[in-house]
């Protein structure tokens, strides 16, 4: 079973994402900001990360930069999932090493498609 780290400061979003991902047969770990997520990654790298942009303590881009610097961190598939839906943010995310990008709101079909595109499904 593949693991997915869901990083979002909204508990509701984390719950919805968890439900969708568990139906797709993922083992889900949650984190409410980038710092908590980074600690989780340091103890065990997930196969994929569903990542919000705007969060307290450490935002999504900073987390992504830190993740990519970890040993093996370049192999983790990172899918942004954010309300930042303008072209500039998307380009910045891709430049920072994001594999895919979901513009909220999302549904299970979009998550499934994007996870499939990055090889997680």
């Amino acid at each position: 079973m593949k693991t997915c780290l869901v990083v979002d400061d909204s508990k509701v979003i984390r719950m919805v994402a968890r439900k969708i991902l568990e139906e797709l047969n993922f083992s889900v770990v949650e984190a409410e900001d980038g710092k908590v997520a980074l600690e989780a990654c340091k103890s065990r790298l997930p196969d994929g990360v569903l990542l919000d942009w705007n969060m307290p303590v450490m935002d999504g881009i900073e987390f992504l930069n830190e993740l990519r610097a970890l040993p093996g961190g370049e192999r983790v598939a990172v899918v942004f999932c954010t309300t930042e839906n303008d072209l500039q943010h998307i380009q910045d995310a891709l430049a920072a090493g994001a594999n895919e990008y979901i513009m909220k709101p999302f549904d299970s079909e979009i998550i499934q498609t994007k996870f499939s595109q990055v090889g997680l499904i």
């Binding site: 839906n85 072209l87 998307i90 380009q91 994001a98 895919e100 990008y101 513009m103 999302f106 994007k114």
Partner: peptide, 20 residues
């Protein structure tokens, strides 16, 4: 729409071939 472009279109393709 945003919903339509997210259904199937890889993000790199969206950035390359679409304008907002």
């Amino acid at each position: 729409t945003q919903f339509e472009v997210q259904r199937g279109l890889p993000i790199a393709t969206l950035v390359k071939y679409f304008k907002q």
